[in-house]
Design a protein around this nucleic acid. Structure first.
Lengths: 210, 210
DNA sequence: CTGTCTTAGTAACAACAGTTACAGATGGAA
DNA sequence: TTCCATCTGTAACTGTTGTTACTAAGACAG
């Protein structure tokens, strides 16, 4: 917790950090836990201390797609707008690994906005970041072919975990990219033939010239 | 201008409206005018009085795509985050028809946020709206086939113009949907065969069971 | 009227992604 | 060990989209 305080100190004022400690609720989740689910009321905004959260979106026909990831110091702009308006969640947030976060109650969100300039800029930065992530997702889906998206996905996975070996089944990948297992298997095999990676059961090892 | 004042009165406080009149710069654009272009510095946020603005996005390979439309009383959240950070524009805004707007200088944006609660909620509502539009675009592209997207596009066009006859060439439609003319022609012809519309030169007339 | 530009229709083809079906591999539980 | 669930590989096929190429109809200036 000491560590957290120091880290927040980089972009939030001291008084605000004290308030966060006082008002915020510390929560922790295990890998795979559902932090926010569809159609639930959102009563807090998460400020992530450690770990990674995957944010997904589902449409009317239950097609699900990956929106973006959130990690340390980030927070979910979508959650913000939702809980300011007391709306039901249109997104689902899942813990990618073990996640610690501070849940900020929604009454405070608004109050702090006028009270603390650093909170205001933090929130606006979050918005901007999320906008950009969404735009990037949009571009990715609109313009890039599936193989490019897959490569990008694997690169990102490897970056956030810090490992070149990715522990995922083809099925899991397919679900996140919104396609089917067979398609992913096909593309992965192709990449293996190009010597960019090696396939094992439940594991993909990225090679140097990936 | 009197009309504007009354309309803003619905969701902004009086003092703020007076400030907007004092500080904002009234601007008008003709159909096709570029209001904001890529890589330009954004020095103001537009608050739209009348008309419709089309917001586009281009990626590295010059693929362009329609993000959303803005109309009366709306404003561009993207512009907001851009000019708060004095960044270059990553979007392009084009006047769909004759557009009148009030340009709010970026120094005021931040100031009003703490000063006027109604401004704060207005801005946050804008963000939420834009988020939702983006998510809808994303869904549309990710999950819906081109024919569905085309139908949606035509419906929307007809709604904002208030006419069942749409004055556009196949080429223009293709560009906005990020595809090629031939493809649009093919789909339109298909829809014509299904008696959903009638095709003319530079015009598409939607029929009753569209 | 002639030439030219824009717009639209159409055919043929290639590329890509999604689907179905099946077979074999792996690993854990009983 | 056997059984079973999960994971992976592969083939064959389909539908959608994008591309190229060509034709023809309107619009309009000179």
């Amino acid at each position: 917790m000491k560590d957290l305080k120091e880290r927040l100190r980089n972009f939030l004022e001291l008084k605000l950090i004290e308030e966060i400690e006082k008002e915020g609720k510390f929560m922790s989740f295990k890998e795979g836990d559902v932090i926010i689910d569809y159609n639930k009321n959102i009563k807090f905004m998460p400020l992530i201390i450690s770990g990674t959260i995957r944010v997904m979106r589902k449409d009317e026909e239950d097609n699900e797609i990956l929106l973006y990831y959130l990690s340390s110091n980030e927070s979910c702009a979508m959650a913000y707008t939702c809980c300011m308006e007391a709306r039901k969640s249109e997104i689902k947030a899942i813990a990618e690994d073990n996640v610690e976060l501070v849940a900020i109650p929604h009454e405070k969100l608004d109050e702090w906005l006028t009270k603390y300039p650093s909170w205001k800029s933090y929130i606006f930065n979050s918005f901007t970041q999320r906008f950009n992530e969404l735009l990037r997702s949009l571009e990715s889906i609109a313009f890039h072919k599936l193989d490019q998206r897959l490569i990008k996905y694997l690169k990102n996975k490897s970056k956030v975990t810090g490992k070149s070996a990715i522990q995922l089944s083809h099925n899991q990948i397919a679900e996140e990219l919104g396609t089917s297992r067979v398609v992913i298997s096909r593309l992965l095999k192709q990449l293996e033939n190009e010597k960019k990676l090696v396939l094992y059961r439940n594991e993909i090892k990225l090679l140097s010239d990936f």
